[in-house]
């Protein structure tokens, strides 16, 4: 997917998109693949990639596009990063960069080891790594949930 874009990508609003881009590179390992700057030096558009995923980091560009920092810390969506290895190391790196880790890495009933954190403007991120393959039957037995999967 070198010059294409995935079907689904997410746009995030920040009060300070330039600081956010630098932070996301340092904390999570994103790479900035496109940056468009206006004549006043502000960030007009950006695309950051991690694996085969893309996010767009921008400003609070309308009355309805706000950073959590501007709306009392509320989030209406969260972004999940599924990584292949070393989720504990990933968490330590994010924490060292200033992430507020509010759920430490823990192995979940579905076989992923995950942690959750907030970035400096309050966006919630979840990060997971599959450490064990668990059958639906085993998950149902462990939790009492009814699990249906297709495909």
């Amino acid at each position: 997917m070198p010059d294409g874009r995935p079907t689904l990508s997410s746009g995030l609003s920040y009060r300070d998109p330039r600081a956010a881009i630098a932070w996301l590179e340092k904390a999570f390992g994103f790479e900035t693949t496109m940056l468009v700057e206006a004549p006043d030096g502000s960030v007009a558009h950006s695309e950051l990639r991690l694996g085969d995923g893309v996010i767009m980091v921008g400003s609070e560009w309308s009355e309805d596009n706000k950073s959590p920092a501007s709306v009392g810390g509320k989030n209406t969506q969260t972004i999940h990063l599924q990584i292949e290895s070393d989720v504990d190391v990933h968490c330590a790196r994010a924490r060292a960069a200033g992430a507020a880790v509010f759920a430490e890495p823990e192995t979940q009933f579905y076989g992923d080891r995950t942690y959750r954190c907030k970035d400096p403007e309050g966006h919630i991120w979840t990060v997971g790594q599959t450490v064990d393959v668990v059958s639906n039957e085993a998950m149902e037995a462990a939790t009492g949930l009814k699990i249906t999967t297709n495909g």
Binding site: E31, T32, T33, M34, E37, A38, P39, G41
Partner: peptide, 11 residues
């Protein structure tokens, strides 16, 4: 000089 674009690609 401002008004710029930056793009990057791993090869």
């Amino acid at each position: 000089m401002s008004s710029r674009i930056v793009v990057a690609l791993r090869v």
